[in-house]
C-alpha cells in the first residue's frame, strides 16, 4: 500500500530529475520539428509536382508512414540501421524517426492548405499571366501559410506527446525517467502522475499559444 497516499516530500524530491527528463522530451520534440516541417514541405512539393514515378513513390511513402504505428517505425529504424553500419545514439535515432513520421503528417497538412485555396486564385494568376515565382511567393504562400500554421502548431503538440514513445529505445526522457524512478523506489504514483501533469502543463500552454496564433492570423 506504499503508493496509496500521495507523499509531497517525495514528489518534490523527484521533481528536479523529472524536469531534466522534460528538457530531453522538449529537445527531442523541437529537433524532430526542425526535421519534420521542411521535410514535409519537400515531400508534398514532390508529390504534387507530377514527376512520373517519383511522385507516386513519395505519395506511397507518405501514406505508409501515416498508416503504420510510430512505435514500430522507431523499432525498425533503431534495430535495422546498425546493419548498414550506421550507429547513432538512441536520442539521435529517436529524433530522426519522430522527424520522419512528423514530416509525413506535416505533408498532409500542407496539402490540405493548398487544397483550401479557391480554384479562382489559380485561374486569376493564369489569366493575369503572373510570373510563376510570383504566383507561389506572392499569391499561394501568403494564403496557405495562415491556414497551415495553426495546424502545424497542433502537430508539434501531438509530436510532443508522441515523443514519450522514445522511452522504449532507452532515451531517458520524461516517461523513461518517471518509470526508472518508479522501478528504483517502488513508488509509481508520484513519478507517473507528475509526468502526466508536466505533459499536460506544456501541451496546454502550447495549445494556448496555437490558439493565439490562429486568432492573430484570423484577425488580419
Amino acid at each position: 500500500m506504499s503508493g496509496f497516499s500521495w507523499d509531497w516530500a517525495y514528489a518534490l524530491s523527484i521533481l528536479p530529475e523529472l524536469l531534466r527528463g522534460l528538457m530531453i522530451t522538449v529537445q527531442a520534440t523541437l529537433l524532430a520539428t526542425a526535421i519534420a516541417l521542411p521535410l514535409g514541405l519537400v515531400l508534398i512539393l514532390i508529390r504534387v509536382a507530377g514527376i512520373p514515378v517519383v511522385s507516386r513513390a513519395v505519395w506511397f511513402l507518405i501514406e505508409f508512414l501515416r498508416g503504420t504505428p510510430f512505435l514500430i517505425q522507431l523499432y525498425f529504424i533503431f534495430y535495422v540501421m546498425p546493419n548498414y553500419g550506421v550507429t547513432l545514439s538512441p536520442f539521435t535515432t529517436g529524433v530522426i524517426a519522430l522527424g520522419i513520421y512528423g514530416a509525413a503528417r506535416a505533408a498532409e497538412l500542407y496539402r490540405a492548405g493548398i487544397e483550401a485555396l479557391p480554384p479562382g486564385q489559380w485561374e486569376a494568376c493564369m489569366v493575369l499571366g503572373l510570373p510563376l515565382p510570383f504566383v507561389w511567393r506572392g499569391v499561394v504562400m501568403p494564403q496557405v501559410v495562415p491556414v497551415v500554421t495553426p495546424m502545424l502548431g497542433n502537430l508539434v503538440i501531438v509530436m510532443f506527446k508522441d515523443s514519450a514513445v522514445l522511452s522504449t529505445i532507452t532515451v531517458l526522457e520524461l516517461v523513461a525517467t518517471a518509470k526508472d524512478i518508479g522501478v528504483m523506489t517502488f513508488r509509481y504514483l508520484e513519478p507517473l502522475t507528475l509526468a502526466g501533469l508536466l505533459f499536460w502543463i506544456v501541451s496546454y500552454a502550447a495549445a494556448h499559444g496555437v490558439r493565439h496564433l490562429e486568432a492573430r492570423h484570423a484577425g488580419r
Binding site: A164, S167, Y188, G196
Partner: peptide, 23 residues
Amino acid sequence: IELFRGTSAVVQLFWAFYVLPLF
C-alpha cells in the same frame, strides 16, 4: 477531455498499469 487529450497516451497506459493497482 482535457485530462486525456493533454497528457501522453503512454503515460496514461503506464498509470493504469502501475498506479491503479495501488488503489
